[in-house]
Write a protein that binds this DNA or RNA. Sequence first.
DNA 1: AGTATCTCCTGCGTGC
DNA 2: TGCACGCAGGAGATAC
Length: 277
Amino acid sequence: MPELPEVETTRQGIRPHLEGSKISQVIIRNHSLRWPIDADLASILDGQTIHSIQRRAKYLLLHCDTGVLLIHLGMSGNLRILNTADNDEVGKHAHVDIIVDNGHTLRYTDPRRFGAILWTSEPLSEYKLLKDLGPEPFTDAFNADYLWQQCQTRRCSIKTLVMNGKIVVGAGNIYANEALFLSGIHPSTRANTLTLQQCNQLVRMIKTVLKQAIEAGGTTLKDFRKSDGQPGYFAQQLNVYGREGDDCPKCGSIIQHYKEAQRATFFCSQCQKLTSA
DNA sequence: AGTATCTCCTGCGTGC
DNA sequence: TGCACGCAGGAGATAC
């Protein structure tokens, strides 16, 4: 399941093959993603140059001549770089091919179709899906004071808060679990009861765990593959996520599992005490 | 404004 | 072996 590290890994993988290239053909086999793909997308993109590929939250942004192509991988989306000449077998869920003039094809595959491919020619700062997003986790804007301020007016659990893209982007379920474990904070702790010191620790751990995951090439649980088809290796570094019943790597207690706001939540009851309800 | 719930979809694991 | 079923999950939409 692609979270920020997986999206960033994908960006780094596809960028060298696409930046500066010109789109020569777009094949859309299935328009039905989370939102329907623009019926005119193929003709809009035809002949445009991909100038740069950036990332905002979990959106990949392909800056073209007259606008930006936004790609979200959803739950099961995946981008691969293929050699156009190879004529690779088109899988059941290979919904879109973007063929460029340097011999490469960008193929979007997404079994669950929770992802999105959207076109916009308006400034990104005004684009609906991006304008209300919180800071990127690696920027200085995401710091202890900021998080603590955000916590003050909210009674939701700290795990829910951290996963809220309006607070900070990129901390999905896996990494929220991991960062809370490394911070020694119980996932159900009410946000407005966190101390500044806890916020400081949590901010540092979110940055740390996301950075380590990017360095490992992302987390491959079921279906994530990097753009070259290889899995990421961060799953081997997970302390609590998916490890219900295992020994806590810090203290040896048993890792617990429950649902917090509909999401699978893992923690160590010794290392992550609930300080207040 | 903040929070909880619903929703999209397919593949996989489980139990019979 | 096969089927029915439940579940996972990012994040926008919707209802309080």
